[in-house]
Design a protein around this nucleic acid. Sequence first.
DNA 1: ACCTGAACACCGTTCAAGT
DNA 2: ACCTGAACACCGTTCAAGT
Lengths: 213, 213
Amino acid sequence: MPQAASRQRRDLSLDEIIDRAAVILRDEGEQALTMRRIATECGVTPMAIYHHVTDKETLTGLVMDRLIDAALVPRSVGDWRTDMIEFASRYRRVFIDNPGAGRLYVRQPVIGPGTARAVEEVFRILATAGFPPAVIGRAADAIVLLIMGSLVNDLTRPANIRDQLIDVIPRSETPHMKRSLKTFSHRDPEQRFRDAVAWLLDGLEHALIQERS
Amino acid sequence: MPQAASRQRRDLSLDEIIDRAAVILRDEGEQALTMRRIATECGVTPMAIYHHVTDKETLTGLVMDRLIDAALVPRSVGDWRTDMIEFASRYRRVFIDNPGAGRLYVRQPVIGPGTARAVEEVFRILATAGFPPAVIGRAADAIVLLIMGSLVNDLTRPANIRDQLIDVIPRSETPHMKRSLKTFSHRDPEQRFRDAVAWLLDGLEHALIQERS
DNA sequence: ACCTGAACACCGTTCAAGT
DNA sequence: ACCTGAACACCGTTCAAGT
């Protein structure tokens, strides 16, 4: 039988804090994730949290790096283009499936083991494709731009909000809008993302081929 | 000589509110932009603002759409690739030069005349390139992803924070990191963005050429 | 070292009232 | 219609103190 709880519980760990915070974020979203709420969930006073972490941003950073790490699965086995598209889609989906975490992710930097392993994996895929190291860094950055942009678009812009664009100025000013707006606004977000990544990889591959010939 | 101010000033307009808010945001950043501060700058009580606008988010939306509209210049005259890269860079720079506005922009949707004209311009450039309407919407979306991603990266991630990635896990786990991290972390942000857009356009152009043959 | 209690310095917004 | 005054229901965090 475990010892009765002492007057002051001394068993609160950083790990437990991160876990409790992650649950709140996943189940109730970002505005539910307050220091006071995390403390309550840990059965402790708000200021107890500050003994394990310097401020809220570093705590949320730890939560998000852990989410990334948990989503990394053993490397896949297709060709490098497929591997990259699948990896980027999986990374994106971590935050699409956890919108609270996603909205936090585009607001603050995240550095940790999960992030490092994710970046290493992108580097590895590009290396197997045959890109020289000088290009790999820039190419990886371009992939990151698409992931971040996709999160912003899909987490902060409601699905069909772009339909409103046709009505805010006279249609005579927007001759091209009428023809192209539908494919701009109505489309599966995941597929839009995969299209963009595919085009980017096409451009990269094209540059690689030209350099070799 | 103008009339003396009445006891209750009734000359506060939405336009003035937007202007004052824009100045605060540009000069002092996002955390200075509070409803109370805007009210003070307008010489009015906080609640007076709510008579002209329903909430803070719609107000900041109006500010940002106006920033976009002001940055749109007469269409350029190069080939479509150059036009697109220049347009995207200029759009991005609006928010890079105004970081407070930029950080708000990746948090909330913005719909208005400025946004509509910007989207129309992207459609126009892609149309002159010869893309069919069904592709134009998807291509425009891909461009938007890069712009949004670039804003997130350059406004929320400090320049060289990626250097820390090498130290968070044992180097034996990251064989590719050592070779490629430098080009991933040290690089002119604007140039990185232009590279990414150029690769994307390469991929798009390639698809267009293949379709025609 | 680990935690509590009270307070500070803010927020956006509602509500009721004035003219 | 346009604005004021007071208050509500919160925040993250500092500071001093307890054990």
